[in-house]
Amino acid sequence: MKKIPDASGLVGWRKSSYSNGEGAACIEVADGMPGAVPVRDSKNPTGPALAFRADDWASFISAVKNGEFAG
Rank of each mutant, 00 (worst) to 15 (best):
Y18K: 00
A70N: 12
Y18T: 00
S59C: 09
K43W: 08
N44M: 09
S17F: 04
P48F: 13
G23V: 11
I27D: 01
P38I: 05
D41V: 03
E68P: 02
R53P: 06
G67T: 10
R40C: 09
V39N: 02
L10T: 07
P38M: 09
P48K: 11
P5N: 14
A54W: 09
S19Q: 01
A63Q: 10
K2R: 15
T46L: 09
A36S: 14
L50N: 02
S59V: 04
G67H: 11
P45I: 10
C26N: 03
A70M: 10
A36G: 03
S16E: 03
S62K: 13
F52G: 02
T46H: 13
L50E: 02
Y18E: 00
K3V: 15
E68S: 07
W57L: 05
S19I: 00
R40E: 06
P5E: 15
I27F: 06
K15W: 02
I4Y: 03
I61V: 14
Y18Q: 00
S17E: 03
S42L: 04
S8H: 06
T46G: 12
I4K: 04
A7Y: 04
A36D: 05
W13A: 03
K3N: 12
L10F: 11
A63G: 06
G23K: 11
F60T: 00
V11K: 09
P38E: 04
G32E: 05
A58C: 00
G47W: 05
M1G: 08
V64D: 07
D55E: 13
G21S: 05
V29G: 00
A24H: 15
N66G: 06
K65V: 04
S62E: 14
P38C: 06
I61L: 13
